[in-house]
Computed example of a mutant assay.
Amino acid sequence: MAVMNIEYYSEVLDMEWGVTVLYPDASRVTEPDCTDIPVLYLLHGMSGNQNSWLKRTNVERLLRGTNLIVIMPNTNNGWYTDTQYGFNYFTALAEELPQVMKRFFPNMTSKREKTFIAGLSMGGYGSFKLALATDRFSHAASFSGALSFQEFSPESQDLGSLAYWRGVFGEIKDWTASPHSLESMAARSDKKTKLWAWCGEQDYLYSANNLAVKNLKNLGFEVTYSHSPGKHEWYYWEKQLERFLATLPIDFVLEERLS
């Protein structure tokens, strides 16, 4: 598996931007001239970047047994959102990034059924948000995702000032009615994306996950949700990524996964 650090000029963000890509070995691609290689977008959490998964987990070892192109973009602490302070991270990742990656990798699939997304914490929110708002992903996964602020105050967790949160989402009095809430995006979605979520029972986001999953199911979504003892830690996210990969319609070689 090749590891590539790519820099390109983002017209949306008006700056040089970086993305890390894992590209499958030739032996993992069924047809050498395949123009339909499946792709997974793998998102980082707060204070992370495009290299977080590589630095904090054995994701390269885990993914070498797949036939996936894995794209790990950066969003700073922008919550995969077009922020109030002018950095349009959502547009950059939802619209511009796939086009840029297709130029680099013309054999990357354009089919929804072979396009997947997953993320941890802030990236769990980003995963569901990008899936619900674009209807371009067949499967989306959240690991300890910050899926709802309906009953959760981020500033109470020392995760940033009130000015920071207003800079990202604006003034919000009712989260579920906000255009940034998953519930608002879900109401406009075609509901064809299969949602997959896990959260640790000792995680401070556990109640937020329970609430968001309940709301999404009430809106008609297929959500596979599990929880087990666990904290807000990389140890659990790596294990859950492995579980999620096993559910996807991709090649996933078990013996190499364990080697």
Rank of each mutant, 00 (worst) to 15 (best):
A187N: 05
W234V: 04
G220C: 10
S142A: 15
F149D: 10
A246D: 09
F105G: 11
S226F: 01
L241V: 01
R103D: 14
L54D: 02
L182H: 06
V100A: 02
A177T: 07
F143Y: 14
E155N: 12
P249G: 09
N51R: 12
T57P: 04
Q157I: 03
F143K: 04
S148M: 06
G200K: 08
G170V: 08
L245M: 11
Q157D: 09
K191R: 15
N218K: 12
W234I: 04
Q99V: 13
Q84R: 14
S127Y: 01
A133Q: 14
A92R: 11
R112F: 02
T115C: 10
S184K: 08
G220Y: 08
V21G: 14
T193R: 06
N218M: 15
L216T: 01
T30Y: 04
S121A: 11
D36T: 10
V253R: 02
F87Q: 15
W175L: 11
M4V: 14
K111Y: 07
A2G: 01
S144E: 13
A246N: 12
F244C: 06
A197F: 02
I6A: 01
V21N: 10
P98E: 06
P32M: 03
T75W: 03
A140R: 02
D203M: 11
L248A: 08
V213K: 07
L245P: 10
K239A: 15
H180D: 09
H180I: 10
S142G: 11
A140K: 02
I37Y: 13
S184V: 00
I71T: 02
D33E: 15
T115L: 06
F143T: 04
S259M: 13
F137T: 07
M122A: 11
L245H: 08
S144Q: 11
C199P: 02
Y85F: 12
Q202M: 08
R103G: 07
L147W: 03
N67K: 06
E171L: 01
E222H: 10
G18H: 10
R28I: 09
V253P: 00
A140V: 10
N210Q: 12
T30C: 09
S178Q: 13
N107E: 15
M185G: 10
T224G: 08
Y9K: 06
R61F: 13
Y164N: 01
E16N: 14
F149L: 14
E155M: 05
R64M: 04
L120W: 03
L132H: 00
G230H: 01
E31D: 13
L216M: 07
C199R: 00
K214V: 00
R28Q: 13
T30N: 11
W196C: 00
L93I: 15
W234A: 05
G145S: 12
E255S: 11
L97D: 08
S226Y: 05
F128I: 01
S138F: 08
T83C: 14
G220E: 05
R257P: 00
D174G: 10
T81E: 05
L97F: 03
